[in-house]
Design a binder for these strands. Structure first.
Lengths: 203, 203
DNA sequence: GTCTATACTTGGATAGAC
DNA sequence: GTCTATCCAAGTATAGAC
């Protein structure tokens, strides 16, 4: 939006970076316009000039990496593969999200959305594609397996997203990723166990 | 703490109620001392007199029902039962937590703890018993089943807690519990499927 | 134990100079 | 497009009267 001068664009990027980092490191409750400006070393008024208000900025900060992540997920998980490969790819993607702070930013905004109708609405719209993507993935995977009739994809997709969010909260409580690692280990073991039941590569 | 007059106790209870309700309905970011006092119809200064500071109050509000819940969980899940019974009891307990707002209050404080070291420390201490309880439960259940060697109880307990927290966030995003209901339906179907593999009642 | 009053701080947002 | 200055609202916390 607004005029797209070179300087303007650069500043907008700096603001997004600062917002993302503040949200990640200080949490939603401490992410004020002033805190973001302090971190980024720019003037606080710029936030309102460029993004209208605070949550507009926070959503934009989440969206910028969020869209990249969607493409990455589709690319990595969209191709053929057996359950074992699938499990190890999911672990990789999740590790990227934790390392980049994306999962944290998402979880923070998710939790904060309960107290802000505008934020909630925006978050809901952004989560829908993820839920649908997960459902499509599960459907494709289950097709031709003996679990197809047993698994409710809608429920399973909800469980996957819940796990994603909850794991991030848990990781940050004690700053320990070993529990998350153990969960993915378990996932890979499970995948190896059921693998023989899947007939060839799906898709 | 402090003097325990009848009036003082009653006021402390009112403050706890108001804090719990505010946290539940307005979210952590909107739960100020003034907001709590407005809701409860008492003076804002009473919070500091009785609980020292805001997060002291919020923790106390969570603890009051949290301890009751721990006992209830131990009572309901601690007895013997097969996987099918176990799944339906878990659904009942979770529904109670959602209806009472307990899961919401816990998830709010969980998410907020990333931005507040004192809160984080307190939450960590409170979550440990739950993790241990879940691990004990899983261990007891898996003993004698063919899954004993396959499942890492530490990882599984983390997954259960993550699901618990994440499901609450998801429920509040669209105000729709049907997805959570579908997850428990799926859990019960899964329990019915593996049930024959469990030899008799555990314990 | 409870209330009023208040000191102090932080934050969202805007106006207007540059 | 960016900065300074500023208004105003809201919050934490304390002092002291009752």
């Amino acid at each position: 939006m607004l005029k797209a001068t070179a300087q303007g664009i650069a500043t907008r990027e700096r603001i997004l970076d600062a917002a993302f980092d503040t949200l990640r490191q200080d949490g939603f409750a401490n992410t004020s316009a002033r805190a973001v400006a302090r971190r980024g070393g720019f003037n606080q008024a710029l936030i309102f000039y460029h993004y209208g208000n605070l949550i507009g900025l926070l959503l934009a900060a989440m969206d910028r990496v969020g869209e990249q992540r969607r493409l990455r997920y589709e690319e990595v998980l969209g191709g053929p593969g057996n359950p074992i490969e699938f499990a190890s790819r999911a672990r990789l993607l999740y590790a990227e999200d934790v390392d980049s702070g994306h999962s944290t930013v998402v979880a923070e905004l998710f939790a904060a959305s309960s107290g802000n109708p505008e934020l909630r609405e925006q978050m809901l719209a952004r989560m829908k594609p993820w839920l649908e993507f997960t459902e499509r993935l599960l459907e494709r995977f289950l097709a031709g397996s003996p679990f197809a009739s047993l698994v409710d994809v809608r429920a399973a997709a909800g469980a996957v997203l819940s796990l994603y969010l909850g794991m991030d909260l848990l990781i940050h409580l004690d700053g320990d990723r070993s529990r998350a690692t153990a969960m993915f280990d378990a996932g890979e073991r499970l995948a190896a166990t059921v693998e023989p039941l899947f007939g060839g590569d799906p898709r």
